[in-house]
Amino acid sequence: MQVSTTVKADTEMKAGDSSADTSSGIEFDYQLETLDCHDIPGFAGHELVIACNDAKTGLRAFIAIHNTSLGQALGGCRMWRYASDEEALTDALRLSQGMSYKHAVADTQQGGGKAVIVGDPRRDKSDALFQAFGRFVDSLGGQYVTAEDVGVSVDDMVSVRQQTKHVAGLPTSMGSSGDPSPVTAYGVYCGIQAAVALKQRRPHDVHARLDNVTVAVQGVGNVGYALCRHLHNAGAKLVVTDVHQSNVTRACIEFSATSVDPEAIYDVSADVFAPCALGGTVNSQAVLRLKSAIVAGAANNQLAEPAVAKTLTDRNILYAPDYVINAGGIINISYEKQGYNLDKAMRHTERIGETLTEIFQRANTEGISTAEVADHIAQERLGASTSRP
């Protein structure tokens, strides 16, 4: 893999769409490079990967489009304190591939793409930086539609919209779907209900009470906080942790949650472990420490490596594949293309529980992990689409 973020692109940036407001007066110094990622194991199938840099605003970003056989690429933009450009690029590739699988299983009729911005979301944001990012999105001519993700807000997407029309998840006042976090959280809640129902050997019911269920929530930011509200309202007992103490304090006050240090969350005796922070937290060491019968949360790329799925299965821990259970937000945003309707989006999101129930049953029948079943379903749908005449 070669990552160069100082070489100007061979082709010029495409002119902005007439519907985008490009009269902000902000000057940009674009540097765009198409990257060849075919030598990175596991990521050779990406359709397009670009490095985006703007010296005037300090923007350093990557946009990865994995697969558009089912439709236009749609995926959020993440901003994080990556240690290197290589780390950021790898995250973009993993996330965009996950988006293809997520769209395929969730039946949104969209393709998979993702963007990451290198920087501290609490310190390095600016209107100009997100406008610069918007110009790079616009240069792709609609191949990729962006939205908010970890470290990026609805307000940031408003800045992006000043430079491109290819953005979703804008405020409801602009005729869009707004912050997708609440719907993501609701989808995770539906998935937890399905997993608990299976463990309790009862029919899945999204409205069931969870009075005797303890959930250990790792990360109580926007999605984790909204998930805690659903769980608390259903009677569940909550144990929470977060790297930001203010998030923990809020959850403890509002939901009568118990808090533990971040590293101690793996040792909590709970029915459900819900990873809702960044990915890779469920690794081979953490799995051996878990005292939960279920792993079901909102984070992307929860498993540090594929082998962890088998370890979970061997330990009789039911795993709700991350890109299946956390699809609510992208389902919600996908409804913008047909005239946004919250009721339809929520009904579609509730199907996450039904989909997971099918995955759990198929995994049991076939004697393989739930992660493998989810991947097979996604690959079957992606393959069926690419094989059509």
Rank of each mutant, 00 (worst) to 15 (best):
R81Y: 02
D39I: 08
P121N: 04
P121A: 12
K114N: 08
H66M: 01
V116R: 01
R81P: 03
T108S: 12
D29C: 07
A92F: 07
D29Y: 12
L89M: 07
T108D: 06
K102I: 10
T108P: 03
K102A: 06
D107C: 04
G42N: 11
V105E: 06
F28T: 11
V118K: 02
A83V: 13
L35W: 08
R60S: 15
A106G: 05
I40M: 13
C77E: 01
D29P: 01
E87Q: 13
G42W: 10
S84A: 13
G113H: 05
A44E: 15
A88Y: 04
L59F: 08
K102N: 06
R123M: 11
L93T: 02
C52A: 14
L89D: 02
K102G: 06
D120I: 04
V116Q: 08
G75E: 06
R94D: 03
L59R: 04
L48F: 10
D120H: 06
L74R: 10
T34I: 15
Y30Q: 07
L95F: 03
A106H: 02
L35F: 12
V49T: 13
A92Y: 07
Y82A: 05
A61T: 01
A73M: 04
E27S: 14
D91A: 05
D39H: 15
G112A: 12
